[in-house]
């Protein structure tokens, strides 16, 4: 009797666990079914490398948005990467217990702030700051990068922190015993040993940045062109879907699903690199 109950629980849990896989499959199927027909009709090249987005007139080029999405993502990484890594190193190597107890919940809170709040703060503070001191409208690549850079901090910090903490204590001792200072030990031994984990943190941070929508719509300016300077407005893939879905019909609607397909592929690729590409390297 007890044995059967055990089996039953295991069975139920398996079903629940697999359901998440099922949802993922549903999302995939849904987006592909809706998004692929337009690719076949208009052609991959005309969508992915097309410069003109005029969905009501039969032009579905999303190349500027792909470029823009990558630009804000790298911008976010430039802002958030060094900041996040420094914070992770401080937390793992320098901070005392008390500081750790203060910083870790603060970071979790940072991760929990809704993105609309980030966008709001961006509009109120960052955008005017950029407009007044750097020029342009303020709704720009640089404003978006700064806000996204802050938004991806928790991801980068927590994953880099775990990677640094998992470097064996004996590596540190070996280095210190050879007369290395703490900082020498960190940058010659600890960070190189944790490199794959830190890279994974950066890439997952990129995934978060490229998928972010609300904050981006609010501060990016959403112009339909490839930005030529840090002060130019831009529109990302996510922004495109969110802005137009409400009123899109027919091929226009399908065009937005095609945007979704491209976004999905990019995010899958990033996750794949973070999970498998890097881990494999670590095993060598």
């Amino acid at each position: 009797m007890a044995f059967n109950k055990e089996k039953f629980i295991k069975y139920i849990l398996t079903v629940f666990a697999l359901s998440s896989l099922f949802f993922l499959f549903l999302i995939f199927a849904f987006i592909l079914i809706e998004g692929l027909p337009l690719f076949l009709k208009v052609g991959f090249k005309n969508i992915i490398f097309g410069f003109k987005w005029a969905p009501t007139k039969g032009s579905f080029g999303i190349f500027p948005m792909i470029v823009s999405s990558f630009l804000v993502t790298f911008g976010a990484l430039i802002v958030g990467g060094p900041l996040g890594l420094s914070c992770a190193v401080y937390l793992a190597e320098y901070s005392g217990k008390r500081m750790k107890m203060l910083l870790k919940p603060a970071l979790e809170l940072l991760a929990g702030i809704p993105s609309v709040v980030y966008g709001f703060l961006g509009v109120i503070y960052i955008v005017p700051l950029v407009r007044n001191y750097l020029g342009g409208s303020g709704f720009s690549l640089i404003s978006t990068s700064v806000i996204l850079g802050v938004m991806i901090l928790p991801t980068i910090i927590s994953i880099s922190f775990d990677a640094i903490m998992s470097v064996p204590r004996t590596y540190r001792e070996g280095s210190l015993a050879m007369g290395a200072t703490k900082w020498q030990t960190i940058y010659k031994v600890v960070i190189p040993s944790a490199r794959s984990g830190i890279m994974a943190g950066f890439i997952l941070g990129m995934g978060r940045a490229i998928g972010e929508t609300m904050a981006v719509i609010m501060i990016a300016g959403n112009a339909l062109k490839i930005p030529t300077s840090l002060l130019d407005p831009l529109r990302t893939l996510t922004g495109n879907i969110a802005l137009e879905l409400a009123y899109a019909t027919g091929d226009h609607r399908l065009g937005l699903f095609s945007t979704g397909v491209v976004l999905l592929v990019i995010i899958m690729a990033l996750n794949y690199i973070a999970n498998f590409g890097i881990k494999k390297k670590r095993l060598k």
Binding site: P168, T170, Y171, G174, A177, M178, G179, V189, P192, S193
Partner: peptide
């Protein structure tokens, strides 16, 4: 301590070379 450890070398129980 850093200077001292250059004069007093240590070999630990578990040999862990740097990677």
């Amino acid at each position: 301590s850093v200077e001292l450890r250059k004069r007093v070398g240590t070999v630990f129980a578990v040999p862990i070379p740097l990677p």
